[in-house]
């Protein structure tokens, strides 16, 4: 059970191996990797800002909620901050459980809740250097509500 906010990239295979090592009761592992989408060339770089302290606290609350809802053996959330390029990794969620349903559902829940509650903000820069803050999508908020 862990959450991390970091500037550097992550290695999905290494993170998964470290999280699940030594637990032979884990029968299912789901990993989700979110990447910076170029959106057909309109996004060259993306700067991710966050609220240090609250981000970790909020991610831990979200993870605890997933633990309470599903029988997870292990879980991990890693979110990158700082300057990223199109195609870079931005977020990693790993869930591990005895059977696949809990791992699948918990991974979806963690991403939905992270998107509506974790204090991150993205600013995009296009190839011409024009910047714009990404606007929250109503869709994400309604998806977040489907778990309540």
């Amino acid at each position: 059970m862990a959450v991390r906010v970091q500037r550097e990239d992550f290695d999905v295979t290494a993170e998964t191996a470290a999280l699940t090592a030594g637990d032979a009761d884990i029968g299912a592992i789901v990993t989700f990797t979110g990447r910076v989408r170029a959106d057909g060339g309109s996004v060259a770089t993306m700067t991710v800002e966050h609220y240090p302290g609250m981000t970790e606290a909020e991610l831990s609350r979200i993870e605890a909620e997933a633990q309470a809802r599903w029988p997870l053996q292990a879980s991990l959330i890693v979110h990158r901050v700082g300057e990223l390029k199109a195609g870079d990794n931005i977020v990693l969620v790993v869930t591990a459980s005895a059977h696949r349903q809990a791992a699948f559902e918990a991974a979806g829940f963690l991403m939905d809740y992270l998107k509506t509650r974790a204090p991150f903000w993205k600013k995009e820069t296009d190839a011409a250097g024009k910047t714009a803050w990404v606007e929250a999508r109503d869709h994400d908020e309604s998806v977040g509500r489907r778990w309540s």
Binding site: G34, V48, H50, Y51, M54, H79, I90, V91, M111, L114, K115, T116, R117, A118, P119, F120, W121, K122, W133, V134, E135, A136, D140, E141
Partner: peptide, 10 residues
Amino acid sequence: IAFFPPVTGG
């Protein structure tokens, strides 16, 4: 006390 726009992580 913190003020910010709706969050856009993930």
